[in-house]
Design a protein around this nucleic acid. Structure first.
Lengths: 341, 341
DNA sequence: TGTTAGCACTCTTTTTGCTTAAGTGCCAAC
DNA sequence: GTTGGCACTTAAGCAAAAAGAGTGCTAACA
C-alpha cells in the first residue's frame, strides 16, 4: 500500500491531535474536528491502512489510534508544520540573555533555563572541551608542599581543579620558572597544537620533565570526552506530562537524566553538523530512557562547534514548539557567541 | 497521663515498625512481633493512651496507628537506638574518599554521593564562603578589551567566574601593576580582614580606584549568603519511598530540592554547633517540602565551620541509619580536612 | 488494679455483576 | 471510492455485597 496524500494528511492530523490531547485518536474525532468533508467510515479505512503499514497502533480493539515510533519519525521529518515563535516568546528569550553575556558557561546556563521554561520539558546542554580552543593564560603555582594548582584560561572557558604533583624539593622560584616556560610555549596556541609538543621541547625542559608531563596529562584529561560539562534544567518538568504518572517511568527517566555520564554519552553522539537532530525511541539507544525523545541542536563559539543543547522528554512531545524554541535560542546564541570577540 | 516506661517502649516499637513497613501499626502486630508476653487488648489500651497524648493518629476508626510529628521528634531525641555502621558500610565510605582528597569541593561531592548511596535518600551539602578563608593567590588580567578576569585561590577553594570591568584605555602593563598591588595587599589575609581595607589604602590606589572597587565588589558578592555552593545527589531516590507515589508530592519535593536557593536557605539556618540536627515537618518552615525531614551535620576545614551536609526525605525516614551514616562520614571528613594541611 | 477474652461496631478493600460509552470492522448499497 | 448501518469488543463506571482488619468496650479474672 502506498502512502497517499490523504494518508499523509490524516497521519499528520492524528499525531497533532495526540500530541495535544494525549488521548488515542478516533476516526470520528478526526472527521468532526478537521475533515468535515468525508465520513468517519472513510477515515476509518485509511486508519486501518496506516495501522497495517506500521504507523499507528491500537491499545485494544475498540480504542482510538496512537502514533508509533515510525509515525513520529515521519512526522518530524516531513509532516509537521514549522511554526514560528510568538513575539512574547522571542522577548522572553532575548531578555534571558541580557546579563552575563561575557561568559560561555553562564550563557549556556541561561539558554538551558529559558528553553526549559518555554517548552515545559527538561532541557540539557553539553559542552565539549574543544581542541580548537586557544590558550590565553596558563599559570602554575604551589598549593601544598608536593602539589601545584594549574590554571588555564582559554578563549571560551576557565579550566580549574587541576592539581599536579611536584617534587617537594623544588623551590617556589623554580616552579615559577617552569610556569613561565610553559606559558611561553603554550599561550596563543590551540590545545590541538600542543599535544604533539612533548618530544620537540625535551631539551629546554630537561629539568622540569615531571612538571611538564603533569601539565600535559592534565590537558589530555581535560580534553577527554567523558569530562565534558553537562548542564541540566527542569528535571521535575517531566511530571507535568501524563505519560509519567507511573513512578517506575519517572524513576527510569531520572536515573538517566541525573547521570551526567549517560547524558554526556547521548549528547556526544550527535556529531553531525545537522542543525537540529531528533533521536526518538529507546530500543537501539541503550542509555536513552525508554519511550523518550531527545531533540538537540549544536552551537559554536569562534566558529568551532563546542556543544549541544536540547530537550529531553516523552515520545509524545510538542516537536513543533520544541524545534522552534531551539531554533530561536540558537539564533541568539550565535549572535552572542560571535559578537563576543 | 504520664509517659510510662511501657508506653515509651511501645511508642518506640510503633515508630520502628512504621519506619520499616510504611503500614499503620496494629496492636495485634505489636504483640505478635515484639511483645509476646502481653495480649493485644493491653497494648490496645496503651495505644489509646498514646493517641490521646498526641503521639499517634489513626487514619480511620479501624486502622492501625501512625506516628505523629511529635512522636518522630521524641523518637529521634530519646527513643531510637543509636546503631553502628557495619564494616561493609565503613568500607564503602572509606573507599569513596580514596581519591581527590586534595580538593575541598571534590571531597564534599564524594561525601554527598556516598551518603545518598548508603541511605537511599536524597543528600545535599552546602558550603558557605567563609570570611575566615585565607587568600593564597590573587590575580587579575585582561580578558576582553574592557573586561578582566579575577582569580582568587584560597586555602579551601578556587574562586572563578568573576569578571571586572576595566577602562579600555588601560594598558596591560597597568593592569599587571594593579594586580600586583592588590596581591601584595591581600595575599595571606582572610577575607574578613580585607573588607575594611577600602579606606585605608585609598592613597596608593588612587589611580586604580576603579579596579580596586571592582575587586572588592566581586569579593563581597562571593561572600554573600545566597551565593554559597549547594551540591545535590540522588534526587530520584525519593521515588523509592511509597509516600511519594503521588506525583503531586514528588513535584513539590523536586521543586524545593532542585532550587539551589531554597535549599541553601534551609541549610543555612542550621548554624548552631550541634553535631547532628534534625528538622521535622513542614508547617513552620516555609521552604521545607510538606511532610519532609531534613537531617544535617556540619563540617569544618582548618577548624572553621564551612558547611552543612545531610539528607532530605520523607518524615518516615530511617533516622537510625541516616544518623549513623552521617556520623560515619563526618568522622572521615574531619580526618581528611584536618590532615590536609 | 491491671490484664484478658470476647464481641459488636466501623471503615476499607476487594469482588462481582451489570450497564454504558467509545470505537472499530465489515458489508451492502450508493 | 464513499457511505450508513449494525454487530462486536473492550474499557470504564457504578452499586451492592462480601470479606478483612482493627478498634473500643465490657465483664470476668488473677
Amino acid at each position: 500500500m502506498k502512502l497517499s496524500e490523504r494518508k499523509r494528511k490524516i497521519l499528520q492530523l492524528v499525531v497533532d491531535d495526540y500530541i495535544s490531547t494525549a488521548q488515542p485518536v478516533s476516526s470520528k474525532s478526526i472527521t468532526e474536528k478537521y475533515m468535515k468533508d468525508v465520513s468517519s467510515a472513510t477515515v476509518r479505512s485509511e486508519l486501518a491502512g496506516l495501522e497495517e503499514m506500521g504507523y499507528l497502533t491500537q491499545l485494544h480493539t475498540s480504542s482510538g489510534r496512537v502514533p508509533s515510533v515510525e509515525a513520529y519519525k515521519l512526522y518530524v521529518a516531513e509532516l509537521m508544520d514549522r511554526s514560528k515563535l510568538t513575539t512574547r516568546e522571542v522577548g522572553v528569550i532575548k531578555s534571558a540573555f541580557k546579563d552575563h553575556a561575557d561568559n560561555l558557561e553562564k550563557v549556556v546556563q541561561n539558554a538551558v533555563k529559558v528553553i526549559s521554561e518555554l517548552t515545559d520539558y527538561t532541557s540539557v546542554a553539553y559542552t565539549t572541551h574543544s581542541e580548537k580552543d586557544k590558550i590565553v593564560k596558563i599559570d602554575l603555582f604551589r598549593y601544598k608542599p608536593s602539589q601545584a594548582l594549574l590554571l588555564i584560561v582559554t578563549e571560551n572557558t576557565l579550566i580549574r581543579d587541576k592539581f599536579i604533583t611536584i617534587p617537594e624539593a623544588m623551590t617556589d622560584a623554580q616552579i615559577n620558572e617552569a610556569s613561565d616556560l610553559i606559558a611561553s610555549l603554550f599561550v596563543g596556541k590551540e590545545f590541538g597544537e600542543i599535544v604533539g609538543l612533548s618530544e620537540v621541547v625535551s631539551k629546554e625542559f630537561e629539568s622540569y620533565r615531571e612538571i611538564f608531563d603533569g601539565v600535559m596529562r592534565a590537558i589530555e584529561d581535560y580534553l577527554e570526552k567523558g569530562n565534558a560539562d553537562v548542564i541540566l534544567e527542569g528535571e521535575g518538568k517531566i511530571l507535568k506530562h501524563p505519560e509519567y504518572n507511573d513512578s517506575e517511568k519517572v524513576k527510569n527517566f531520572l536515573s538517566v537524566v541525573t547521570s551526567k555520564n549517560k547524558l554526556a554519552g547521548l549528547l556526544a553522539e550527535n556529531t553531525d553538523n545537522i542543525e537540529i537532530s531528533i533521536k526518538i525511541g529507546g530500543d537501539e539507544e541503550k542509555d536513552m530512557p525508554k519511550d523518550c525523545s531527545l531533540v538537540t541542536a549544536t552551537y559554536s563559539a569562534s566558529g568551532v562547534k563546542v556543544g549541544t543543547y536540547g530537550v529531553i522528554g516523552p515520545l509524545r512531545m510538542d516537536y513543533q514548539k520544541v524545534v522552534s524554541v531551539l531554533e530561536g535560542v540558537g539564533k541568539i546564541l550565535e549572535d552572542i557567541l560571535t559578537n563576543k570577540k
